[in-house]
C-alpha cells in the first residue's frame, strides 16, 4: 500500500492529511508503521522490523498490521483511493 506523498507526520504521532484537512493521532507503533509505509517499505519488511523491535509474535502482528492498514485505507490515507482526477 502506498501512502499519500504529502502526508505530514510528527514525532508525537500526529498525522495530518493536507489534501482534506483531516488529522489523526497514533501511538508509537502506529507511527513506526506509517513512517515505513511512507518510505515505501513493503509489508513483509515492515513486519520484520516490528518483530525485531517489539515483543510480539508473528501471528498477533499479522492480524494487527492488516487491521491497521485497513484502517488507514478507510481513512483515505492511501494514494490510490483518493485520486482527484
Amino acid at each position: 500500500m502506498k501512502l499519500k506523498k504529502n502526508l505530514a507526520l510528527s514525532e508525537t504521532g500526529f498525522v495530518f492529511d493536507p489534501s482534506n484537512g483531516n488529522s489523526f493521532a497514533t501511538n508509537p507503533i502506529g507511527l513506526s508503521i506509517v513512517k515505513m509505509l511512507k518510505e515505501g517499505k513493503d509489508i513483509e519488511l515492515i513486519k520484520k522490523n516490528i518483530l525485531n523491535e517489539y515483543l510480539t509474535d508473528a501471528n498477533t502482528l499479522e492480524k494487527d498490521i492488516y487491521d491497521f492498514i485497513n484502517m488507514l485505507k478507510k481513512l483515505q490515507l492511501n494514494e490510490n483511493e483518493t485520486s482527484n482526477d
Binding site: P18, S19, N20, G21, N84, D85
Partner: peptide, 19 residues
Amino acid sequence: QYITDKGKAWSGISIDDEH
C-alpha cells in the same frame, strides 16, 4: 472542521487541493 447549527464554520483548516 466544526459547523454550527446554522451551517456556519466555527473552525476550519486550509488545505492543499490542486484540483
